[in-house]
Amino acid sequence: MTRPIPLLLAALALALPLSLLAGRVWIDPTAPLGSEAALILAELRLPRAVLAVLLGAGLGAAGAAMQGYLRNPLADPGLFGIAPSAALGAVLSFWTGWASAGWALPAFALAGAAGAMLLLTLIAGRNGGVVLFTLAGMMIASLAGALMSLAISLSPTPFAMSEIVTWLMGALTDRSWREVWIAAPLTLAGIAVLRAAGRGLDALTLGEAAARSLGLDPRRLQLLLVLGVGLTVGGGVAVAGIIGFVGLMVPHFVRPFTDGRPSRLIVPSALAGALLVLVADCLCRVLPLAGGELRLGIALSLLGAPFFLHLLLRLRRELV
């Protein structure tokens, strides 16, 4: 069995400095650094790269934990409705015009995520069942989606509407250190919480009854999952909009290199997610495209949808 963590760390250590060089202005690492290049590096490229790493790490870890919790390789962190609720919060900040005040957008988005987490926790109640919980998450997701559409259709000005739609497409363009300081503590705390859920997720491999017979407290596991997914996904949406498919795809790349236990998947998935988003964002920046730059959220969906289809076909083959 190969050890995925050192390998992924090495790959990240290689990709991060390389990603700083690429963009509309290519920076030649052999030439002396001009003041303009230094400014681009320190204030644009570095925070953007750090943000990509954080975002990918959070989504990868959340995806791995969700698949473990639902015992289903097709699960995605979006299923709990936290991402759409955070997006709804962000949309409301545009809608009310508060978004122009710097801190309002992430604050609104985080409030949306917190609202979804609270609702999920209340619904979880004393029951600890996975099915009811997941259905509740899906209801929250569709409700948030409907409210978002309502807000867009009633948007006060066409300008606000286009702003909302563009933001929803998820991107890391023009982000600064401020967004890094918002996302970093939330993401890291979230990954730590998800790691703590690892033992419970391992027990769930055997089904709910066997897991409880092994001493699992289903309520506690649910709370850890809501908190962990809420922090990572909520923090991610607050700074970058909705970025799909990372949480779905990444655990599949990593799983063959682990012993199959969900607890062993969380940290490698975080690292692989970081790598994927970093490289994808870099490609978005470099790809020549008339009328601006390819949005990260769109790029990952373009990549993710065929992957999902491939996964479904493979699963079907295995079931036959």
Binding site: T205, A209, G215, D259, G260, R261
Partner: peptide
Amino acid sequence: AIGYLPQVAEVAWDVSVQTLAGLGRLP
């Protein structure tokens, strides 16, 4: 103290026999 083997023989992930048995050590 009490080991329980449920009726439904579910194993969600493709773990090895050794890893599967190792899950019994969780408590």
